[in-house]
Write a protein that binds this DNA or RNA. Structure first.
Length: 218
DNA sequence: CGACCGATCGTCT
DNA sequence: GACGATCGGTCGA
């Protein structure tokens, strides 16, 4: 069981540009590896000088044109999916069920539409600002458990699709947090039954025992 | 607990 | 016109 991570970090870390993940992290060709490596990293948003940050505890990989669960399956290119065809290191945000804004990290090179969905995260900075956005009074794991809730707490919406993660509004940092291999769990992805046999692939990664992982408790 | 259901709207056929 | 890479609530056992 992974010990619960710090519930607060120093703001100076958020300002340390050396800690920010760079293009070489995002533009690797193995989206499964990127999805796994994003566990434990800190996703930061800075809108109107308000900083909020969460430690990523659950991700899902979407493996491009051969993946029936991906919006880019069969090389589907539309206005919505076009950002996935750009270079790795940008945000792909889309509206799900008319209500939820789901945040993805685009990976790999131009014309290879890989992406990683951030499904669960643990608040580490700006908790009051996140509570305000979610219209909640007290911190509990519903604040940033599930992809819709993560985006809501961070203030990320579809208008941020295409935003570079190398910039200063949305970015991801490495604070040196390390994760033992035995504490990384894989499983099939959530909510992709329509993807036939690809729904069975173990493309979901999460930190064992972390209370901000979505899905049923057990 | 688990099953079910309504909300809500952009996107694609 | 149908349908979600969801969520939170309700209902019954």
């Amino acid at each position: 069981m992974e010990r619960s991570v710090d519930n607060k970090i120093d703001k100076r870390l958020l300002l340390r540009t050396a800690a920010k993940l760079d293009a070489s992290f995002y533009q690797r060709d193995n989206v499964l590896q990127v999805a796994k490596d994003l566990l434990g990293k800190i996703l930061v948003s800075r809108f109107d000088k308000v900083y909020t940050a969460v430690r990523i505890v659950e991700t899902e990989a979407y493996n491009g044109i051969i993946d029936k669960a991906s919006h880019a399956y069969n090389n589907r290119r539309t206005a919505r999916t076009e950002v996935m065809y750009g270079n790795g290191g940008t945000a792909y945000v889309y509206l799900c069920y008319g209500i939820h804004h789901l945040f993805n990290v685009v990976t790999n090179a131009n014309d290879i539409p890989h992406a990683v969905l951030i499904r669960g995260a643990e608040p580490v900075y700006g908790i009051q600002a996140m509570l305000n956005r979610a219209h909640k009074l007290h911190l509990d794991n519903t604040l940033t458990k599930g992809p819709g809730n993560v985006s809501k707490a961070l203030g990320i919406t579809t208008k941020h699709t295409g935003t570079s993660l190398l910039g200063s509004e949305i970015f991801i940092i490495n604070d040196g947090y390390t994760l033992a291999k035995k504490n990384i769990v894989t499983s099939p992805r959530i909510g992709v039954d329509y993807a036939a046999e690809d729904a069975l692939l173990h493309y979901r990664f999460y930190i064992k025992g972390n209370p901000y992982v979505s899905g049923k408790l057990k």
